[in-house]
Design a protein around this nucleic acid. Structure first.
Lengths: 349, 349
DNA sequence: CTCTTTTGTGAAAGCGCGTTTATTTTTCAA
DNA sequence: TTGAAAAATAAACGCGCTTTCACAAAAGAG
């Protein structure tokens, strides 16, 4: 069924059918109704490719999730408590705005070619990228395409270096620095002086922010920044578990840990439990992200909440707006974070 | 950059460029190399819409996740331990086969129109549908489109009723009946005689299979099928928690529960813990799905494992094959399930 | 060295729709 | 009745690519 068939059945011209479909004003209500009736009776839907070729948009957004997990063990993204709610909300919000979502996972630079391809082949009008690490090559490659894209959780300064003649980019961030500082300050106020840091990957925006906030808050409060910061946690539960266990068995045991994400906080709790340490009796733990299980644990995990829903919605609205209005000026939004106090932190003995 | 530009730069005609791109045999190696060089130098990618209009496929698969969660509280699909691994594996497998994935969540019959739209507008070559409940309307609507689709976890008999002149459908199932029967038989072998069932939604294929397996296995072993089967669990942890708590406070307390999925088993464990019942000392619990946390709990949950990875891969391969070879004959695959014995089941006191 | 095959190549048509232009038909006011 | 404005149409073009068909060049046969 093509528009020509509809025209014939409705007894009008193809031009009129097109005007009806695209909601043009200069078609009287009576004609419109007549045409709409035929369209609905025949379940006609205009061919997307033909529309695009004739100058309309694809009405599709690319959603690219960049994973640092190796390809051998890929089952981690959608089950990852950080990415999953982003993906879910973005898909729903974009859909509700009348756009479709092309989803793609990126495990390697090779996979990344597919992202460029999707843009160049005009499969999508714009893209949302989440999980991008500090990577000049990738970002520049995308920026060069001069098509709208939104980065979630990225270093604005880094992006600005790649601005070309026009701006097609936006960044959605959360105030991780402030959130982490709140958590650390909270631990200090409880009386902790020896606080350990379980850091995430420092080539991510949030990893760096949370790290810096820890160090600077400690210094600001005239506390000693520990030498044995755990750097190889990589945001992964198992890694944190191993590192924390090792640290706890040494002499210099901290009375509290600030973990750069909840997954690693869970790993730390695993380690404590295994060594027979009470939480929060013997050791306090604060996390970051406030993943759903955080509140269901016992003891429930004190954590910093990320406004994932709001960030996702913002990303979706941003990209759709950019697609519809062509390029817009560069913009960036930073959402507030919030310390959720639960049961895993107490005064030191 | 269009194919014409490439043709000019390479000193050939557009036809030749097209032949190179589509890997036609009748172009000599020398010409091919010359054209490829220009293509790569200019990062040329053919416009997808134009290709489709000229008769090629979209190289895109629709992935439709049907949720029973209400729209008010939609954040459940990708964080749902059942759907998430399916989505993840399907996306990756389809991508690796050179296809893109259009993902869409369906919360209502209204959303479902979007599924039809995606097919009719020729945005996708075929679709994978997961989470479809027994719903003649929806299934028939899809079947009528005469485009390839794969249903995961669906009643084959029901689908067969909607076959039209040609077959474009395939079904991927797991042997839930056998798995559930194994679990129930295991409980019986441990010596349990009063076994409770926490059932899932009976309008899903897996819900019915697991229910029937329970009832028939009990009868087969000459045990009394309890009157108070929990029917309103709906596969949801919280609902199961409430129902189990109520049941446990009544006189007729079973010595074991078989839960139609792990989420509800978790709810049952919540209830037991709250009432001070030891697992597996006072009460045994077996679940279904073997979600990742099952093995991390203490006590670790005995459960029936679903070969999600294999099922997802099969679905992906199936749909791509169907898209490339046009329609194929109707096919269905049923994957084996496996009882994973852990710590939540023991002999009754 | 001609005459067929084979191989390589290009011109042109067509995919389904949107848009524009020139033209015809209808409507309504004067 | 006339004239202007509004509504609708037909026809043509273009979007970027694939594909068919016809033709030219190269290769092989006699």
């Amino acid at each position: 069924m093509r528009s020509e068939d509809i025209a014939r059945l409705a007894g009008v011209s193809r031009s009129t059918v097109s005007r009806v479909i695209n909601n043009y004003s200069n078609v009287p209500e009576k004609t419109r109704a007549k045409v709409m009736k035929v369209i609905e009776e025949n379940h006609y839907e205009p061919n997307t490719s033909a529309r695009v070729l004739a100058g309309k948009g694809m009405n599709t957004i690319g959603l690219f999730v960049i994973s640092t997990a190796d390809k051998q063990n890929p089952n981690r993204i959608y089950q990852n408590n950080y990415f999953a709610p982003f993906v879910e909300t973005i898909v729903d919000t974009v859909n509700r705005m009348g756009y479709y979502v092309l989803i793609h996972t990126v495990y390697s630079e090779d996979d990344f070619l597919k992202v460029k391809q999707a843009f160049l082949q005009k499969r999508i009008d714009g893209g949302i990228i989440i999980g991008m690490e500090k990577n000049a090559g990738m970002v520049h490659a995308i920026a060069k395409l001069e098509l709208p894209f939104v980065l979630i959780d990225y270093d604005i300064a880094e992006l600005l270096e790649h601005r070309l003649d026009k701006d097609y980019a936006a960044v959605i961030n959360s105030k991780d620095y402030e959130g982490a500082a709140m958590a650390v300050r909270y631990l200090i106020e409880l009386g902790h002086e020896h606080i350990g840091l379980i850091s995430g990957r420092l080539n991510t925006q949030s990893g760096r922010q949370r790290y810096q906030a820890f160090v600077e808050t400690m210094e600001e409060q005239r506390l000693e920044v520990p030498e044995e910061i755990i750097l190889s946690g990589e945001f992964i539960r198992q890694k944190a578990y191993e590192e924390v266990k090792q640290l706890l068995m040494s002499r210099k045991r901290p009375t509290a840990f600030f973990s750069a994400n909840d997954e690693m906080a869970l790993g730390a709790m695993d380690a404590c439990r295994e060594l027979g340490l009470q939480i929060p009796g013997d050791i306090s733990i604060a996390g970051f992200d406030d993943i759903p299980v955080a509140s269901q644990l016992s003891p429930a995990l004190t954590s910093v909440r990320l406004p994932i829903y709001e960030m996702s919605q913002a990303a979706a609205h941003h990209i759709v707006t950019m697609c519809e209005e062509g390029s817009t000026s560069f913009s960036t939004v930073s959402f507030p974070t919030q310390l959720i106090v639960r049961e895993t932190c107490a005064e030191p003995k």
